[in-house]
Design a protein around this nucleic acid. Structure first.
Lengths: 230, 230
DNA sequence: TGTCAATGGATATTCGAAAGTTGGGTCGAA
DNA sequence: TTCGACCCAACTTTCGAATATCCATTGACA
């Protein structure tokens, strides 16, 4: 999963990052088969490198290995989304609760900073009318900051891994689930406030609702079409 | 982490499993460097295969990649053990709580079965005076069964991954922490009972204590010596 | 007509060697 | 003697070819 410690980049790192970006940018479709000949051509590399990059992505559950049949991009399904959401709701709410209880000033500061940046990016979204990669980055950082004071790196990382998977669903279903108008910025502000006033119960409830609501929206939209791809 | 879906075994699978077994069997020491020439000789394979096997182990955090310097077995430290334990306590207790609330008859049955097998293996341990791989397997299955009814595969798998890492600590420190006599079988029985009578509060508390107690024992023992290895 | 086995093309897996990088050791200068 | 640059050996990383496997299609048989 995680890459090396030093900033020494290897060719595998590059291919891994490009592949990952292509998955999140929806240039590769869920369920799509990733053939080595194609990959080597597209990323201008050799089989061994592509293989290791895919192995890393498999560790993140973004691709699935099939023995003797290569790899496919992970498939999306309502069942998996339900499972994923259940796990996220529990994991994130418990981590947030711990962070509110145990977080120090540095944690508070990180939350404030991340929320400020997210607010700025919200404004940019309001202007352009579309969420860009910058917004997604700030959103991810905000949620990571909320949990970062919980006292266990592993807890944060586990939550982060699940959130990455969930983001894939968001990217594929986001344009569809535009039925109910939703004040996401307000939800984020409420989360930040609960963190700063150290209200663990309210914070945990808000986060549960925040995560569950996104799933509800996605489930109303159609995910199936992405699943059926070969 | 997880291997392919079908029972088609590839050479990488074999090397991966043997390497993993060697780590848990303490034939490879924490922090030890894993050189490809040695690996290829020991497992009679090629570089590419060894590389992919190591990539899988890196996904489980059992080995660590260092760019241009190969892989090392994960290092043990008290700080990491504390972090790991904190994560496990929260994750397992919440999953157990959910399982007690939502688990069906199949879950109850699995708990009873796993506990029965563990009891039998306990008897074997009492006879031989030493825990064998069979006991560890039954122990792992019992704890997995406790959580299996929680309703989210991902939650169970996350807990399982952390438990595997913790087992590494147990294997390396177990012979040392034999100070306080401890009724582990009794603790397991209490856990199974709480599950069957559906007492979520008691079950969660018992599991927290069960996990935390193991860590306390390990922390009293010396872990440092395993860390300092190059 | 339906089922099963054989065949061929495409693809994944594995290997061994070439290329590039690291860290340590040696030599020389201050 | 100490510091720094250079060099060498060992190792990791990368590559492209050789091998093994799978899937779809075809043909034969019931």
């Amino acid at each position: 999963m995680t890459t090396a410690s030093q900033p020494r980049r290897t060719r595998t790192d590059e291919v891994y990052e490009r592949l990952r970006a292509d998955i999140f940018a929806a240039r590769l479709r869920p369920g799509q088969r990733l053939k080595f000949p194609d990959l080597c051509g597209a990323y201008n590399t050799s089989v061994g490198v592509a293989r290791e990059a895919l192995a890393r992505l498999a560790a993140e559950r973004l691709v699935r290995p099939h023995a003797h049949q290569g790899y496919t991009v992970i498939s999306l399904s309502k069942e998996e989304l339900v499972d994923l959401t259940a796990a996220r709701v529990e994991l994130e709410s418990i981590a947030f609760r711990l962070a509110i209880r145990d977080g120090d000033e540095r944690w508070e500061t990180a939350v404030v900073a991340a929320h400020h940046l997210l607010t700025r990016r919200d404004e940019a979204v309001a202007r352009t009318g579309e969420r860009d990669p910058d917004w997604y980055e700030a959103h991810e950082e905000f949620h990571a900051a909320l949990l970062s004071g919980c006292g266990s790196r592993r807890l944060v990382e586990a939550a982060q891994a699940l959130r990455a998977e969930a983001e894939l669903y968001r990217h594929w279903a986001a344009p569809l689930g535009s039925g109910a108008p939703r004040d996401i910025a307000g939800e984020h502000k409420a989360l930040a406030d609960a963190a700063l006033v150290r209200d663990a119960d309210r914070g945990a409830d808000l986060l549960r609702a925040h995560i569950a609501r996104t799933t509800t929206v996605l489930l109303d939209g159609a995910i199936e079409e992405a699943v059926s791809d070969k």
